[in-house]
């Protein structure tokens, strides 16, 4: 599949990444390879074959509604790129895209 600039712009927007110059050409090649591989899979006739979503036959794997709170705030914040003693800190972004 030919990957044009518009497609790269679209994907970059969704992935919150940016590609310019050499990087853009590199990602274009990679994407073309990936989509090429997928196109190969498309040649297989899958009529009547249900998509495989789950690797086991388990259903209804549920837990009872019980609280287990053994993870501390300190542990939670430990690996954050930026945090204070209570909160994770991220660059200011105002957006409402959720739910």
């Amino acid at each position: 599949m030919k990957i044009d600039d518009k497609k790269i712009a679209e994907l970059s927007h969704l992935a919150k990444l940016s590609f310019e110059g050499e990087e853009k050409e590199a990602i274009r090649k990679d994407l073309e390879k990936i989509t090429g591989f997928c196109e190969l899979l498309n040649e297989v006739d899958t009529t009547g074959v249900e998509p495989l979503i789950y690797l086991s036959d388990n259903v209804n794997v549920l837990r009872e509604d019980q609280v287990k709170q053994d993870f501390t705030k300190e542990q939670a914040l430990k690996n954050a790129p930026k945090a204070d003693s209570d909160f994770f800190r991220v660059p200011k972004v105002i957006n409402t895209a959720r739910n």
Partner: peptide
């Protein structure tokens, strides 16, 4: 519910920030 949808963290309202979390909810 007492605990979250997909992990056993507590769900109480108004608690100190980031005290009802776990590797799953994070």
């Amino acid at each position: 519910t007492k605990s979250k949808a997909f992990c056993p963290d507590a769900t109480e309202y108004g608690m100190m920030p980031n005290t009802q979390v776990s590797p799953i909810s994070l």
